[in-house]
Simulated scan of single mutants.
Amino acid sequence: MVLVLVREEAGVLGASLDELKEYLRIGGSGEDGLLERLLRSATALCEQFVGQWLILGEARATVLADGGWQRLSARPVAAILGVEAVAPDGEAVALAADAYAIDIDAAGDRWVRGQPLDGRRVLKVRYQAGMAEDADGLPEPIRQGIVRLAAEHFSARESEVATPPAVVGALWRPWRRMRLT
């Protein structure tokens, strides 16, 4: 059970401002702030829909050190950067690689397992997760869906309701990973 998940980088963009402006046929820079916020929002909605982080970023997870396997929440995991055993008073001690175990399952999820160490029953795991290093590395349908969703929200700002186009879900669906609990 993951007790806490923290994403170090917030507000990443899954498509560029230039892509959105080209799609909307906007030449000036007067709307840039609004357009960037819409891209951040569309990127976050895409990540929620596909169940994966789009852009590679660092995560910190706090998991139990009870000898059982604990799934890391952010996906896809690219690398484990370090594991620390945490005392009840918050003092952390870095663990050697042979003091914990990591595994990857058939679905591509990473798992970590550690034993209690000197009364330390919690592990702090630092790792990287994400599909691509930057927006240019994302699959084109994902980027196009982000642009389409941001453009829809931009166009609907004068109306009462912004309804996402069905094509956005169709573009993202092949990358969707869901967990059954």
Rank of each mutant, 00 (worst) to 15 (best):
residue 33 G to W: 12
residue 36 E to K: 10
residue 38 L to V: 07
residue 39 L to H: 06
residue 39 L to W: 04
residue 39 L to D: 07
residue 41 S to D: 09
residue 42 A to H: 05
residue 44 A to Q: 14
residue 49 F to W: 03
residue 49 F to L: 02
residue 52 Q to D: 03
residue 53 W to K: 15
residue 53 W to A: 15
residue 54 L to I: 07
residue 55 I to C: 06
residue 55 I to P: 01
residue 56 L to R: 15
residue 58 E to I: 11
residue 59 A to M: 14
residue 59 A to W: 11
residue 59 A to S: 08
residue 61 A to I: 02
residue 62 T to V: 09
residue 62 T to N: 01
residue 63 V to C: 14
residue 64 L to N: 09
residue 65 A to G: 08
residue 66 D to M: 03
residue 67 G to A: 12
residue 67 G to T: 00
residue 69 W to A: 12
residue 69 W to K: 01
residue 69 W to V: 07
residue 71 R to Q: 05
residue 71 R to G: 05
residue 71 R to N: 05
residue 72 L to M: 02
residue 72 L to G: 01
residue 73 S to P: 00
residue 76 P to C: 06
residue 76 P to E: 03
residue 77 V to S: 02
residue 78 A to T: 15
residue 80 I to M: 06
residue 80 I to W: 10
residue 80 I to S: 07
residue 82 G to P: 00
residue 82 G to L: 09
residue 84 E to H: 00
residue 85 A to C: 08
residue 87 A to V: 01
residue 87 A to R: 09
residue 87 A to Y: 02
residue 87 A to N: 00
residue 88 P to H: 10
residue 89 D to K: 02
residue 91 E to S: 01
residue 92 A to G: 02
residue 93 V to Y: 03
residue 94 A to K: 07
residue 94 A to Y: 05
residue 96 A to S: 15
residue 97 A to P: 06
residue 98 D to L: 05
residue 101 A to F: 09
residue 102 I to N: 05
residue 103 D to E: 13
residue 104 I to W: 06
residue 105 D to Q: 08
residue 107 A to N: 04
residue 108 G to W: 12
residue 108 G to S: 14
residue 110 R to C: 06
residue 111 W to K: 02
residue 111 W to F: 10
residue 113 R to T: 04
residue 114 G to S: 04
residue 114 G to V: 09
residue 115 Q to A: 09
residue 116 P to R: 02
residue 116 P to S: 06
residue 116 P to C: 04
residue 118 D to L: 15
residue 119 G to M: 04
residue 119 G to C: 03
residue 120 R to F: 02
residue 120 R to W: 03
residue 122 V to H: 04
residue 122 V to P: 02
residue 122 V to I: 12
residue 123 L to Y: 06
residue 124 K to V: 07
residue 124 K to I: 00
residue 125 V to W: 10
residue 128 Q to I: 03
residue 130 G to H: 13
residue 131 M to L: 15
residue 131 M to A: 13
residue 132 A to S: 11
residue 132 A to Y: 14
residue 133 E to M: 13
residue 133 E to F: 06
residue 134 D to V: 00
residue 136 D to V: 01
residue 137 G to S: 11
residue 137 G to K: 07
residue 138 L to N: 09
residue 139 P to R: 02
residue 141 P to I: 09
residue 142 I to E: 00
residue 142 I to S: 03
residue 145 G to P: 07
residue 145 G to A: 15
residue 147 V to C: 11
residue 149 L to P: 03
residue 150 A to K: 12
residue 152 E to G: 13
residue 153 H to R: 15
residue 155 S to G: 10
residue 157 R to Q: 10
residue 161 V to T: 13
residue 164 P to H: 08
residue 167 V to R: 13
residue 169 G to T: 10
residue 169 G to I: 00
